[in-house]
Design a protein around this nucleic acid. Structure first.
Lengths: 168, 168
DNA sequence: ATTGGTGCAAAACTTTTGCACGGTA
DNA sequence: TACCGTGCAAAAGTTTTGCACCAAT
């Protein structure tokens, strides 16, 4: 029994809920996947191991994991909510490449400190903060300039994490 | 003719599009409203002045205004896209009160500088960044502690800008 | 036995799209 | 005249909900 599983169980019990095979499975698949999964992504993975689990349960369980402090909701602006590990994971922010969708995680204590200072200035009590930098990653920039050198078109958009939808 | 209207017209013409009464009206209503309007909000306001304008046109025009650099999309995580003025408006970030939904705009040059430095460190070319601090504003904190003093429940959630939906 | 959980289908909601008609250049 | 814009209704896509049945405590 991992620490995360214990946290989940404690949360479940504190709220008078029940432990089920589905919730266990969803938690485990989530824990062993290091990515910014959407509910749909997680559903696909869970479904592979137990096709009887429904999408609805994945949605509901992700909310539960968030409440328990194990997951964190992240919105990248692609129309769906993504979830990342939150238990004993250092807070970090994201750079998102608009070329290939790649996500770079980074952290700056200075950045955190200034944010807290700004909040204090406005007598605002911080619960959470979210910083997203959107731009072009080194790889895409290189690809782009090479393409330009050869009088070609801009690089094809790579289909990767959180760049799968062109909607919105 | 305001500067913003000229920018819009220039954009329209550059793209070979046409000037219409609807687009003019939507732009004007948007410009005279200082808020983080969702498409629905703007539609309601426009609809009051000309009930023949449809929601679809508002969506399409907001995209156009964004392209023209007059509006900026902001996502607060309430499930809809909000738009704010972007023309000759300094970049700023947001604190969002989870109690009453109030939005406080703030700016810190230091914060911007560090973000740029972090991006440079990862050889990332910044196109835009978004910082959102979620927490409890001074008013709500006061209301909450007063309520606790009187052994009452937590303050009722005020229905205000971007706090109108409990969905998501 | 009681209370909560699950999966399905349907609903809710925001945003986009197809289409026929009307307006702009 | 040719092309673009508009509004409506329908579609698309994500998330939530109602409900009947099942399972955990």
């Amino acid at each position: 029994m991992t620490e995360e599983q214990e946290v989940f169980l404690a949360h479940i019990q504190k709220k008078g809920l029940k432990r089920t095979a589905q919730r266990d499975l969803i938690l485990n698949v989530f824990l062993r996947t290091e990515a910014h999964l959407s509910s749909e992504d997680l559903y696909q993975l869970v479904h592979k191991e137990d096709p009887s689990v429904g999408q609805t349960t994945v949605y509901r369980t992700l909310k539960l994991l968030t409440e328990a402090g194990l997951a964190r909701e992240v919105r990248f602006g692609d129309g769906m909510t993504h979830y990342e590990h939150n238990y004993k994971h250092e807070h970090h922010d994201h750079m998102i490449c608009s070329g290939c969708g790649k996500i770079i995680e980074f952290y700056s204590a200075e950045l955190e400190a200034i944010q807290d200072a700004m909040a204090a200035k406005h007598k605002f009590e911080v619960e959470q903060h979210l910083l997203r930098i959107i731009g072009i990653c080194a790889d895409c920039r290189r690809a782009k300039s090479e393409a330009e050198k050869q009088h070609e078109k801009s690089p094809e958009r790579v289909r990767s994490e959180s760049a799968r939808s062109t909607r919105q």
